[in-house]
Structures are given as structure tokens and as C-alpha cells.
Amino acid sequence: MISVIVAVAQNNVIGRDNKLLWHISEDLKRFKKITSNKKMIMGRKTFESLPGVLPNREHIVVTRDENYNVNSDQVTIIHDLNLLLEKYLNCEDEIFVIGGAEIYKQLLPYAQKLYLTKIGTSFDGDTYFPEVNYNNYKTEYISEQLTDEKNGLNYTFIDLTRI
């Protein structure tokens, strides 16, 4: 089963210059808890923006670059989205799409679950999360509005399941 996990600003921005625009400690903890011991699908630029190979997770990197290589047994390189869908679309395990924008756009139609961190502020960015038709999902969980102690950003955790 394919799921999407993303932190998104009020104006659908998810980043700028291949970087996150905010640091919300609880969001990072939630990301780690949800994705630990799971597979994560990401584009090459998203993979390269990580601080390194994240522990206890298998990284599936989608790139058109046939020569792209990563020396880690935790990283699988896939060059064809159709092969990725063949392999993981009907998988019983939950596989997480973690970005970037193009990968979200291509795989969102297949996502059965969305794990959103909705940030109550707009940001100036160059990377956007695709529009979601929320009528296709039911809310499984919504947190109260939370506030990050360090930067004062308001945010809400929302888990949605495709109807």
C-alpha cells in the first residue's frame, strides 16, 4: 500500500531550493515514528537533501539517471515509475512517499493514506504539494492545533484514508 507523508504550508509550499523552510521538532519525531522500519520512496533530489541514509528505513530513490548509484544496502535505485508501481502498488506493507513535488504528483493518485502536517502559515517557496481532492478521503485522525515552542509555528497532524 502506498501512503504519502508530508508537511505542507498553508499555501501548499513544501520547500525552497531543495530544503525545508521550517523546523518543527514534533513533526520530525512523527515522521521518524511513522516511517521507521518501512520503505520510503523519494526522488533523487529529496534523497540528496537528507542528512544521510536514514536509519531503520529502506530508501527507494526514483531517478531517470541510469548512472546514479548509492553505495548502501539501505538504498534501492529505480529508473522507471511503472516498475515501481508494479512492485509496490499492491504490496501489503505500507510504503511511504516522502517527496519531492514531482514524485508526490505522480504517486498521489495511488496513495491510500495521507499523513499530513498542515502548517498554519504561508511560506515563500518554489516547491508545492499537488492539490488534493479531500472528498476522496475520510479523516482518521486530527490533532488539536499545536504550536512549536522554538519558532511559534502553528500546525496540525491529520491522517486521511482513501474512501
Rank of each mutant, 00 (worst) to 15 (best):
E94Q: 04
A111R: 11
G99C: 04
I98S: 13
T139Y: 07
Y88P: 12
S122K: 07
D124N: 15
T121G: 00
I60V: 02
V97T: 11
T161W: 11
E92K: 07
T121A: 07
G152R: 06
K32C: 14
P51D: 03
N71R: 15
R16P: 02
N11P: 00
S36K: 15
K138S: 03
D17G: 08
V97N: 05
S3W: 08
T147W: 01
N71L: 13
N154W: 05
R57A: 13
L146R: 00
Y134H: 12
Y68D: 03
K38N: 05
L153M: 10
D126I: 02
D17V: 04
L20C: 07
G99S: 05
N135T: 02
N11R: 04
I2C: 02
S143T: 01
E102P: 13
K32A: 15
V6M: 01
F96P: 01
I98K: 04
R57C: 01
K29D: 08
L108Q: 02
I5K: 11
N69Y: 15
V132L: 07
Q112I: 13
N11M: 03
I158T: 13
T156L: 06
Q145T: 15
I78P: 10
T35M: 01
K118R: 04
N136K: 09
V62Q: 03
M42Y: 00
L81F: 04
I60K: 12
G120I: 06
I5G: 05
L146Y: 06
L50F: 15
P130Y: 01
Y137G: 04
N69V: 14
D17M: 01
N135V: 02
V6W: 11
I41D: 07
E92H: 10
G52I: 15
E140Y: 00
I163A: 06
K105T: 14
V61L: 07
M1E: 05
V4R: 01
T156I: 02
E149G: 12
I98P: 08
I34E: 14
I78E: 12
K105L: 04
R30S: 03
R44N: 00
V61N: 00
